[in-house]
Design a protein around this nucleic acid. Structure first.
Length: 475
DNA sequence: TGTCGACCTGCATT
DNA sequence: AAATGCAGGTCGA
């Protein structure tokens, strides 16, 4: 309560800095893009609406793009026209750190304007907003190509975009992602930035309820959370993602182990050094800017895979999320599961599971039937084997990727992102039940009590129908 | 060429 | 309450 006033004060001060990203919510949904495991650097931050007497909260995201701390929001407006009211959403951003844009504006008008242009350009690029085809149109194409799955899903994943991140940052982040969960990946990436990345100073800090993951503990100097008097001069320090040169020079395995990187600790310094040897970020940018041919796509994947800690999955992510290889479909456990569930009527994928690792008792019914004849030697008896986690072999990845590319075409990677996003817990919750891919837990439950028990806790704020609502909103 | 076990950590479930 | 499972996998044998 006491904080609100100050919060508003600060907002007034900066309200004019917001700029439009010049896109629409059909093309970009922040909730379905920023926290969905593409980038691990975005934090949700609540702010207050100064124009609303009730001081309604709205959410924004704060993250770092290059050397700029960027805050983004979706601002909703209600307009009335001829007795009808329209709701429009404007997506806006502003730069929070002072090193970059705000300073020169006063000094030098022209440079300032130039800089503003550049900022917008860079942020739009980060979101791939200069694609020749709007995401909305792509989704329509995908829906047409795949009415059964994508068509039914598209309303719920509207605006789920594929990002275009700085290559080294993307690559290194995904090296951290192996055999790991998103929460910890975020923590690792954040600590990497704090340890080695350039400081980015922001003069405005909104009081983010979300415990700022990285630096909650040591609040730098700060003594002013005592009362709301001088918060206007609060400064908050963010960090750029370290350059490969910085990492190659300064970072070592032991330090990273101490930071909790586990066995991935050795990969990062090794990779940084190798990348520097190959020409640093420029080397990766060359892979990005190569002609968009199949050949160059494979070259990029091959090059990446030869880096320490980079296998086919990580290479795929880097290629799709940072190197403009838009037809790449990185196949991980989630993608495999959803493909097997929705795109495998003949059980081709399912049959590959058991040939690879004879365990995994859960192979679905049809799959099991299909398999039966393939397996005369290995006892399939699902009972006693100790459920090894399903590991996905390169062969399986290839098959799965080919399958999805054959459906979605040159932008299959974008379709993949949307399909993947639909599997994330928050989005999944918003789906009508019949569109939810069964989780392993679901299946286990099903086996256990003969497909009986539906489920226990069920939210019921969902709309009833859900088949073709234009919208829902994922707050 | 393809398969298998080991590998760090931390949060959730049993 | 200790044990086990599981996370957007990769490496070396």
């Amino acid at each position: 309560m006491k904080n609100k006033r100050s919060s508003i004060k600060r907002r007034n001060q900066n309200e004019e800095n917001w700029k439009s990203l010049r896109t629409t919510r059909d093309d970009l949904s922040l909730d379905r893009t920023l926290p969905t495991g593409q980038s691990f650097r975005w934090q949700k931050v609540e702010e207050y609406d100064e124009n609303d007497e009730n001081e309604k909260k709205y959410s924004t995201y704060v993250g770092v793009i290059g050397r700029r701390v960027v805050q983004i929001r979706e601002r909703m407006e209600f307009e009335e026209e001829e007795e009808k009211s329209y709701e429009t959403t404007t997506i806006e951003f502003r730069v929070l750190n002072t090193n970059e844009s705000n300073i020169c504006k006063n000094e030098d008008k022209e440079n300032g304007e130039q800089e503003e242009e550049q900022v917008t350009k860079d942020v739009r690029a980060y979101f791939n907003l200069d694609d020749p085809i709007p995401l909305k149109d792509l989704f329509e194409q995908f829906s047409k190509a795949d009415p059964y799955r994508f068509g039914r899903l598209s309303a719920y994943v509207r605006g789920a975009r594929t990002l275009r991140q700085p290559p080294a940052e993307c690559l290194i982040s995904f090296v951290c992602s192996s055999n790991n969960n998103i929460a910890r990946i975020k923590k690792m990436v954040e600590s990497l930035c704090e340890k080695y990345g350039e400081e980015l100073v922001c003069n405005v800090s909104s009081r983010s309820r979300s415990r700022s993951s990285g630096s909650s503990g040591r609040d730098d100097d700060e003594e002013n959370e005592v009362n709301d008097k001088e918060e206007i001069n609060e400064s908050k320090i963010y960090h750029a993602f370290p350059t490969v040169e910085q990492l190659a020079e300064k970072c070592d395995e032991q330090t990273l182990r101490d930071l909790g990187f586990g066995y991935r600790a050795k990969f990062i310094p090794a990779m940084a050094k190798e990348l520097v040897k190959r020409g640093g970020e420029a080397y990766l940018l060359k892979l990005r800017d190569a002609p968009q041919t199949e050949e160059e796509k494979y070259r990029a994947i091959t090059e990446l895979t030869s880096l320490p800690g980079v296998g086919p999955k990580v290479a795929g992510c880097a290629a799709l999320f940072s190197l403009d290889k838009k037809s790449v479909v990185p196949v991980d456990t989630h993608v495999w599961q959803l493909a097997r569930e929705h795109f495998d009527p003949n059980g081709e994928l399912a049959s590959m599971e058991t040939t690879a690792s004879t365990t995994k008792g859960s192979a679905n019914e049809e799959g099991a039937e299909q398999q039966r004849h393939k397996e005369s030697s290995t006892p399939t008896t699902p009972t006693k084997q100790k459920d090894k986690p399903l590991s996905i072999t390169p062969k399986m990845m290839k098959k799965c990727e080919e399958m999805l590319v054959s459906i979605y075409g040159a932008y299959a990677g974008y379709a993949h992102t949307a399909l993947f996003v639909a599997e994330l817990p928050t989005v999944r919750e918003s789906l009508p039940e019949h569109l939810r891919t069964p989780t392993k837990a679901d299946k286990k439950r099903g086996e256990k009590n003969g497909e009986k028990k539906p489920e226990k806790k069920k939210r019921k704020f969902l709309k009833v129908d859900g088949e073709n609502k234009s919208d829902d909103d994922g707050a």
